[in-house]
Measured scan of single mutants.
Amino acid sequence: DRHTIHIGDITIHLEGFSEEELKLAEELIKRGIHLEEVKRILEELYR
Rank of each mutant, 00 (worst) to 15 (best):
H13C: 02
G16M: 09
L24D: 02
I7A: 10
E44Y: 07
K39S: 03
E15H: 12
K39M: 15
S18F: 06
L22E: 05
G32V: 07
K30W: 10
H13F: 13
Y46V: 09
L45H: 02
T11W: 10
T4P: 14
I33K: 09
L42F: 03
V38D: 00
L28Q: 01
I29A: 03
I41K: 03
D1H: 06
G16Q: 06
E36Y: 07
L45V: 07
H3Q: 02
E15K: 10
G8L: 10
S18D: 07
L24Y: 14
L22P: 00
I12W: 08
E37A: 06
D9K: 03
D1T: 02
H3C: 02
I33V: 12
L22I: 12
E27N: 09
I7E: 07
R2C: 11
A25S: 02
I41W: 14
I5T: 04
F17G: 08
H13V: 06
L45S: 03
F17R: 03
E36S: 10
E19L: 13
E20R: 04
H34P: 14
K30E: 06
T4Q: 14
Y46N: 10
E36D: 10
K30T: 12
S18E: 08
E27Y: 13
L28P: 00
L42Y: 00
K23I: 05
E44Q: 03
E15P: 13
K23A: 07
T11E: 12
G8N: 11
L45D: 02
I12H: 04
E21T: 10
I29T: 04
D1K: 01
F17M: 06
F17A: 06
K23G: 06
E19C: 12
T4H: 08
I5M: 07
L28N: 00
H3E: 12
G32I: 15
I12A: 09
E36P: 08
E21H: 11
H34F: 11
L14E: 01
L14D: 02
I10D: 08
V38F: 04
I10M: 12
E20M: 07
L24G: 01
K30P: 00
S18Q: 09
E43P: 00
H34G: 14
K39Q: 11
A25I: 15
G32Q: 02
E43F: 08
Y46M: 10
R40T: 03
T4D: 11
H6R: 03
L42N: 00
H34L: 13
E20P: 06
L24Q: 05
I33R: 03
I7Y: 12
I33Y: 11
I5F: 02
R47Y: 10
T11P: 05
R2Q: 14
E21C: 07
E21Y: 15
R47W: 15
I7V: 11
R2I: 13
T11N: 02
H13I: 14
I41Y: 06
I10E: 08
G32K: 00
L42T: 00
E19T: 10
E37K: 05
A25G: 05
I10A: 02
I41P: 00
L14N: 01
R47A: 15
I5G: 04
A25T: 04
L14V: 07
R2M: 15
E26L: 11
V38A: 02
T11G: 08
L42H: 00
E20W: 03
G16Y: 08
F17N: 03
G8C: 11
E15F: 15
L24H: 14
L35W: 14
I33N: 03
G8T: 07
H3P: 13
I29W: 03
E36W: 05
G32E: 03
I5Y: 02
L45W: 08
G16F: 13
L35R: 02
L14Q: 02
H6I: 09
L24P: 00
E44R: 01
R31S: 12
L14K: 01
D9Y: 10
E21D: 06
E37W: 11
H13Q: 12
R2Y: 14
R40D: 02
E15A: 11
R2E: 13
L24E: 04
H3V: 15
L35A: 09
R2F: 14
